Amino acid sequence: MPIEKDKDATIVVKDTPDQEKYELLKEKIRYKQALRENSKKIDHQKVRLNIQADALPSKTFFIMNALAAVIAGYGLLSNSAAVVIGAMLVAMMLGPISGIALALIDNRWLLFKTALSTLLLGIGMIYSIGIILGLVNYDLPMTNEILSRTQPTILDLMIALAGGAAGAFSAVSPRLSVAVVGVAVATALVPPLVASGILFAHMEWKNSANAFLLAVTNIFAIQISSSLVLWIAGFRRGSTEEVQSTVKEFLKRNAVSLMFLALLGIYLSFNFYALLNTRLYESSTEATISTELNHANNIIDTIQYDKRDDFTLIRVSIRGDIPPSPAQIAALNQKLLPDLNDNPSIVQVRFIPIDIIQAEDSPNVKLEQDEAQKLSVQ
């Protein structure tokens, strides 16, 4: 006869000193297992095979990178950073760069040629897709996501060096996924290549060249940092038997890449210095203009810079009640700093009057300055 549920027997086990010892022993065993998992040695042969496989010009490589280029292209054209980042979930540009890094460290000419050809084919395909997207969507304007990749600086070089090191470390670490880090590294490659193609289709040669330069900078930086991580991890030759390799040997095998990286670093440092000076000049100019013109219910909407041969024309768009006088603008010009070429800065104001319209029987309420600020469309 079955026992009723409310009358079932209940067994109560009390904690004993012996049970606490058993729990402590099990915890120590788990801790030692975790230590063994973290201390696993690098399987050099397996890592080499994985890098070599990813460096091959496979169908998967071209299909996934083509899809990444299309998604990134439309993310750039729609000015969506989220779409651009999401496109990198399918990109596979880290593989051939890691193959080049391993080939230089192991001194393997055949692997170098294979990985380099895969990389060049991938670059050509992605760039071509960018040109096609630019031609198909020729009427769309250049977005901030595209233009932001046309001003490479030394900061981009530092980011690429860190990304390449992370990718190489994930490749040799038994407990890290190279796919996740590959996404971050590909973010620095596919978008600037697609952006350069789109700009090329719009015949914006200078911006296109700058975006392509950003991609090239990232490639060299990722390769150098990957080579360094692999060399430190013990990858010294193309066999299962590792040998000692000096720093001199490392520098010799990566001499060409290091030379290009040094030249790029110098050029990008000048770019960063010029960009920094431009930002400081614009920040100082905008602060002065705001102090002089942004009052009496007048609201500054936009400030644009038009560089001429002998001066910089600063176009200021203002909405408000009372337009500034020519004498005010002349006094403002005297207070502005010269531009980066030591030429005068000249302000030109486009004034848009604001009319307050209400019913005849409505009370006449004055628009205060703080209320005008809230109504401003920046």
Rank of each mutant, 00 (worst) to 15 (best):
150 T>Q: 03
301 D>A: 02
121 L>T: 11
177 S>M: 07
350 R>Q: 14
250 F>T: 00
213 L>R: 08
13 V>T: 07
48 R>D: 10
165 A>M: 02
93 M>F: 06
285 T>G: 10
319 R>C: 15
301 D>E: 03
328 Q>G: 14
358 Q>Y: 00
365 V>E: 13
21 K>P: 06
284 S>G: 12
171 A>V: 12
344 P>L: 10
224 I>P: 09
1 M>T: 11
204 E>R: 12
174 P>Q: 01
66 A>V: 01
354 I>L: 15
254 N>T: 09
139 D>E: 14
311 F>V: 14
110 L>V: 01
286 E>N: 08
91 A>S: 13
10 T>N: 08
375 L>N: 05
127 Y>K: 08
166 A>S: 06
339 D>K: 01
354 I>A: 15
289 I>G: 05
112 F>C: 00
38 N>Y: 12
26 K>H: 15
48 R>H: 11
88 M>L: 07
13 V>R: 12
297 N>G: 06
378 Q>S: 04
286 E>I: 10
47 V>W: 13
169 F>W: 15
329 I>N: 08
266 I>P: 10
120 L>H: 00
217 T>I: 14
244 Q>P: 10
338 P>V: 07
96 P>H: 00
314 I>K: 13
351 F>E: 02
172 V>I: 07
296 A>H: 14
138 Y>Q: 06
151 Q>S: 11
313 L>E: 04
300 I>M: 14
314 I>T: 15
367 L>T: 03
116 L>E: 00
235 F>E: 11
357 I>P: 15
165 A>V: 08
238 G>I: 04
310 D>M: 09
361 D>A: 15
135 L>T: 10
368 E>R: 13
373 Q>Y: 13
302 T>L: 15
372 A>E: 06
91 A>Y: 13
34 A>D: 06
87 A>W: 06
43 D>T: 02
100 I>Q: 01
215 A>P: 08
151 Q>L: 09
11 I>V: 11
285 T>M: 06
167 G>A: 09
109 W>D: 14
48 R>L: 09
114 T>P: 04
274 A>S: 15
328 Q>E: 12
365 V>A: 05
35 L>P: 02
342 D>A: 10
130 G>M: 04
183 V>P: 05
282 E>H: 11
106 D>L: 00
234 G>T: 06
6 D>R: 04
87 A>S: 05
115 A>Q: 01
321 D>R: 10
39 S>F: 10
307 K>L: 04
161 L>D: 07
140 L>Q: 14
225 S>G: 08
374 K>D: 06
326 P>N: 01
286 E>L: 05
136 V>M: 03
137 N>P: 04
11 I>F: 07
200 F>T: 15
369 Q>M: 02
278 T>K: 12
277 N>D: 08
261 L>C: 09
282 E>I: 04
183 V>F: 14
124 G>D: 04
341 N>S: 09
58 S>E: 00
345 S>F: 02
305 Y>Q: 05
160 A>M: 04
209 A>W: 10
264 L>H: 03
239 S>W: 02
273 Y>K: 03
84 V>P: 07
71 I>S: 02
65 N>Q: 03
204 E>M: 09
4 E>D: 10
5 K>S: 13
279 R>S: 00
